[in-house]
């Protein structure tokens, strides 16, 4: 097995605490109420938000607040081995935990009896797609004018060999010892998404959480930048 980490450098030349390149653009789709396109390492995802709109089916509507629907979907060509179209169990789980992560941040009580739909399409996948998707979704929601107490920023950290590292790349995710994707509300640092699988001692888990949180803060800066820059292009025209 080729070494994932040698002399403090990872296979893609990153340092342990270094994130892959991330860029986000807000307001990229015409028909959606809000949208965002995101590139993170080789990941390419696009998020679209619709609503608040009439709740369908009606019987699931809530008279106290809007309900959220989140659909994480991978395009068949997004991965090496063609992924059959349609929801699979992994996508369903990711959709669920992502929706729950956002519910904590959105102010839904302004819109009784409505629904807000969030669709994220993974166009190209390279490890960390759920963090990329949730990050894009949060920008798309802001772009759609949906009120939130705070944004939601996501990032993963994990362990490869004996080292805790930030933002696992594909090969690292496959061969590594543990992967911990998280999402936080940046102001408070409260964790709204947390999953882990692998082998970590409590100390390593704590270290991984701290590192992932730092990653989330960097992600949050990019989200802010994307929204600020949405109208900046118009200046000087």
């Amino acid at each position: 097995m080729t070494e994932l980490i040698k002399n403090g450098k990872r296979q893609d030349d990153r340092k342990p605490e270094e994130m892959r390149d991330l860029s986000i653009e807000a307001g990229v789709l015409k028909r959606a109420d809000g949208s965002a396109y995101l590139e993170w390492g080789s990941n390419k995802v696009i998020a679209g938000v619709f609503g608040p709109q009439k709740c369908i089916p009606q019987h699931i509507s809530n008279p106290y607040k809007a309900i959220l629907k989140f659909r994480y979907n991978m395009a068949p060509f997004s991965v090496d081995d063609r992924k059959r179209p349609g929801p699979d169990r992994r996508s369903t789980e990711i959709s669920k935990v992502s929706k729950e992560a956002l519910e904590s941040a959105l102010i839904l009580r302004h819109f009784p009896n409505t629904m807000i739909e969030i669709f994220v399409e993974v166009l190209q996948a390279a490890a960390g797609t759920r963090c990329a998707s949730l990050t894009a979704a949060s920008v798309a929601l802001a772009d759609a004018g949906v009120p939130m107490k705070d944004m939601v920023a996501a990032c993963a950290a994990g362990k490869i060999g004996d080292e805790v590292v930030l933002d696992l790349a594909k090969e690292e995710d496959n061969a590594g010892k543990a992967d911990v994707p998280i999402a936080i509300k940046p102001k408070s640092g409260d964790i709204v998404l947390l999953q882990m699988d692998g082998d970590l001692t409590p100390e390593e888990f704590d270290e991984t959480l701290s590192l992932a949180k730092e990653g989330c803060m960097k992600v949050s800066e990019e989200q802010q930048k994307a929204l600020q820059e949405k109208y900046e292009m118009e200046e000087g025209e």
């Binding site: 729950e100 640092g189 409260d190 964790i191 882990m196 959480l209």
Partner: peptide, 24 residues
């Protein structure tokens, strides 16, 4: 032998301290 998986669910949140305390 130790920890092997974690899953957070629900619409609320946890602080890192709460996570570590309950892991113990």
């Amino acid at each position: 032998d130790g920890l092997c998986a974690v899953q957070k669910g629900g619409s609320g949140s946890f602080t890192q301290e709460e996570v570590m305390k309950h892991l113990e």
